[in-house]
Amino acid sequence: MSEPRTTSSSWAQSIVQGLEMGGVDCRALFLELGMDYAALGDAEARFPQDGMTRLWHRAVELSGNPAIGLNMARVVRPASLHVVGYALMSSRTLREGLTRLVRYQRIIAEGADLNLRMLPEGGALTLAIHGDRLPPARQSAEASLACTLAFCRWISGTPLKPLQVWLQGPPPADPEPYRQVFQAPLQFDAEHYGLLFELADLEAPLPSANESLAQLHDRFAGEYLARFSGSRVAHQARQVLCRLLPQGEPRRDTVAQALHLSERTLQRRLQDERTSFQQLLDDTRRELAEQYLAQPNLTLLEIAYLLGFADPSNFFRAFRRWFGSTPGEYRAALDSR
Score class of each variant (00 low, 15 high):
124 A>W: 14
336 S>E: 13
41 G>E: 14
80 S>W: 03
128 A>K: 07
16 V>G: 02
300 L>N: 06
226 A>Y: 07
181 V>R: 01
138 R>L: 08
68 I>L: 14
223 E>D: 03
271 Q>L: 13
322 W>T: 09
100 R>Y: 06
191 E>Y: 09
251 R>N: 05
88 L>N: 08
27 R>V: 15
112 A>F: 15
139 Q>N: 06
156 S>M: 04
236 Q>W: 14
2 S>F: 10
290 E>M: 00
169 G>F: 03
100 R>G: 05
248 G>F: 02
157 G>Q: 04
34 G>N: 14
47 F>R: 03
124 A>F: 15
41 G>H: 12
43 A>D: 14
56 W>P: 10
62 L>Q: 08
304 A>M: 10
21 M>T: 14
61 E>A: 08
335 D>Y: 07
335 D>G: 00
137 A>D: 11
214 A>I: 08
266 L>Q: 06
139 Q>H: 04
241 L>P: 12
212 S>D: 09
48 P>Q: 00
226 A>T: 09
118 M>E: 13
216 L>Y: 07
230 G>A: 08
296 P>Q: 03
303 I>E: 04
219 R>Y: 10
125 L>T: 05
118 M>I: 15
212 S>P: 10
147 C>N: 09
275 T>P: 13
62 L>I: 10
161 K>T: 11
132 D>K: 10
114 L>N: 03
328 G>A: 10
91 S>F: 06
302 E>L: 05
210 N>A: 00
317 R>P: 05
